[in-house]
Design a protein around this nucleic acid. Structure first.
Length: 544
RNA sequence: GCGCCCUUAGCUCAGUAGGAUAGAGCAACUGCCUUCUAAGCAGUGGGUCGGAGGUUCGAAUCCUCCAGGGCGUACCA
């Protein structure tokens, strides 16, 4: 049992004894040290209910709860009726021991054990290389997957794509025109075609393979397919470089092939949610409380993105995942409310579908704002970014802010000042520890001998231990709230606690017993830093 | 017009379910390397938490209105 659990249990016992129900017990982490490690506002909450002075209730609480040295060392009342609990050192040492025993497992939990989750992200159509815009979604999705796995979920990373339709036709046509240029023909390259350099590269590849044999080929099929192949290979390489792989690439086309698309229309029609107007098929969202209806099949006979999206989400639910996560950029914000409305109207449980929207990445080149667009030539690819600043910095930057905050990414700064980057601050803490451990090894200090942890008494030591002990809760809250940046902030703070400790406390010194205890402490810190960075997909270097 | 997100120190952002004196990094200024990595530590200055009401013991946090910015609001995805 943790100290937190002990306190909650005791508070609950207090409520039970007075037959009070319907109150959820919340423990807070006070900002200031003098207010203890955990604080309860129960007395304040109960004041009105019991028609008593909160201070008096707090006194009763204090008298009621036994000071069990295994968990807490004292209870204090402060302010208007806060009840502050101080974790006992016995508890902290026990937990520190636990970290050293659990090693790379420390931080994992079982709240999601036996559950499955599917995360769909990136999902860029194969019309060009991944850009920085995709990068944020990619890193968020992968990190969320890692976090969910850490709390016990079995996770499927999924990439949904569409290799048919207008975009792909333009892609094929763009490549064909570039190819003709290489064959020495004069061509007019339309403005709304894909302008990027990569199109020329693809054409060049085809030219190398086929010479001018396709010169009079008017069917774009070959150009389109070959372009898709090359682009997809590139995307997969980029993803691999970022540090993960997708488990499933789901082709929108399969929804058509298996009749899922028609099925959705029919089922919506049965619900009276379909109408034909102006040669198009409309989804009557107005009947579901929206302000206007939406077209799901254009008068050309081509479905809009909404229809396959609905079918795809129905499939996801049918596949039986306990948790289904979609990660979109803010520009797709309009696409999901009516999709979910349709899924719900067809009788499926949409509560398990979580749509996460991340705000845009604005790229700066110094003071200059860089506009990005795949169609136009000017974009910075994820690969280029990784070339410049490395994978660790890339991932860290995408993760360090909450996803609903706009991300300003100053490329010039990231390149130039990468030494001052916060990710190095965290990695540096890890490297410093490794360096001390290495020294301990050359001094032949036995790390496996049982250290007397009770020798750890300095405030810097106690603060470090407290922060280490908190790690599993951070992982859990990051996973369950879908907020990876919490872990980033935690690790940054952990590095601060370590650096402070390092400055004040010499690890390897004259007192062998103390050295051993401190080695145990930093080894635990090393484990937590490594586990935490691992969850972020960032390396934990031995030296820098 | 409508929907979603944002507005906190000069700049970039945290602020974990409403809690105690609002935090960090960068930038500015001042100290600390003969000792395990100074990519570090300590300190100083810097704020009407966009504005106005409301809810209550208590609001940066919840509600309403207003202002500013971003993204949408397609028979594009």
């Amino acid at each position: 049992m943790t100290t937190q659990e002990y306190i909650i249990q005791q508070l609950q016992r207090f409520l039970d004894a007075r037959q009070i129900s319907g109150i959820e017990i919340i423990l807070e982490k006070p900002k200031e040290e003098k207010f203890g490690d955990f604080a309860s506002t129960l007395a304040l909450q109960l004041a009105k209910h019991l028609k008593k002075n909160p201070r008096q209730i707090a006194e009763e609480l204090k008298a009621f709860i036994p000071v069990d040295e295994r968990y807490i060392s004292r209870i204090e009342i402060a302010g208007p009726g806060f009840v502050n609990f101080f974790a006992s050192k016995t508890y902290l040492y026990t937990q520190l021991r636990k970290i050293l025993e659990e090693k790379e497992r420390f931080g994992q939990s079982a709240v999601g054990k036996g559950k499955t989750a599917q995360i769909e992200f990136v999902s860029a159509n194969p019309t060009g290389p991944l850009t920085i815009g995709h990068g944020r979604g990619a890193v968020l999705g992968d990190t969320l997957a890692r976090l969910l796995q850490a709390v016990g979920y079995k996770v499927t990373r999924e990439y949904y794509f569409n290799n048919a339709g207008r975009q792909m036709r333009i892609l094929g046509e763009s490549v064909r025109l570039r190819y003709l240029e290489l064959c020495g023909e004069k061509v007019e390259f339309p403005e709304d075609y894909y302008q990027g350099e990569y199109i020329i590269d693809i054409a060049r590849t085809i030219f190398k393979e086929k010479g001018d044999a396709l010169k009079s080929e008017t069917d774009i099929a070959y150009f389109k397919d070959r372009a898709e192949q090359i682009i997809f290979t590139g995307i997969k390489n980029t993803i691999r470089r970022l540090g993960f792989e997708f488990d499933v690439f789901y082709n929108e086309k399969s929804l058509y092939d298996e009749g899922k698309i028609d099925e959705i229309i029919e089922r919506l029609r049965e619900k009276g949610l379909i109408a034909e107007r102006d040669g198009a098929v409309w989804f009557l969202t107005s009947k579901l409380g929206f302000d206007q209806d939406r077209v799901i099949v254009k008068s050309s006979g081509e479905p809009t993105y909404r229809l396959p999206d609905i079918a795809y989400h129905v499939e996801k639910v049918k596949r039986g995942f306990d948790l289904i996560i979609d990660i979109f950029g803010a520009d797709h914000i309009a696409t999901y409310p009516d999709v979910l409305a349709a899924v719900k109207a067809l009788g499926y449980d949409v509560d398990r579908i979580k749509v996460l929207i991340h705000q845009f990445v604005t790229l700066y080149e110094g003071e200059e704002k860089v506009k990005m667009s795949t169609r136009k030539a000017n974009f910075v690819t994820l690969d280029e970014l990784m070339d410049e600043v490395g994978v660790d910095v890339t991932r860290y930057f995408f993760l360090m802010r909450s996803m609903n905050s706009h991300l300003n990414f100053d490329l010039t700064l990231a390149k130039k000042q990468s030494e001052e980057n916060p990710v190095f601050y965290i990695q540096y803490a890890h490297a410093r520890i490794c360096s001390i451990l290495k020294l301990a090894e050359t001094r032949k200090i036995d790390l496996n001998a049982t250290a007397d942890l009770a020798l750890l008494q300095a405030p810097e030591e106690i603060n470090l231990i407290k922060h280490l002990v908190h790690f599993p809760q951070v992982v859990e809250s990051g996973a369950l709230n879908y907020e990876p940046h919490r872990l980033v902030n935690y690790l940054y703070d952990l590095a601060t606690y370590f650096h402070k400790f390092y400055t004040e406390c010499r690890v390897i010194g004259d007192d062998l017993q103390l050295s051993r205890a401190r080695l145990a402490l930093i080894d635990a810190a090393r484990l937590v830093l490594a586990n935490g960075l691992g969850l972020l997909g960032i390396t934990a270097p031995d030296h820098m």
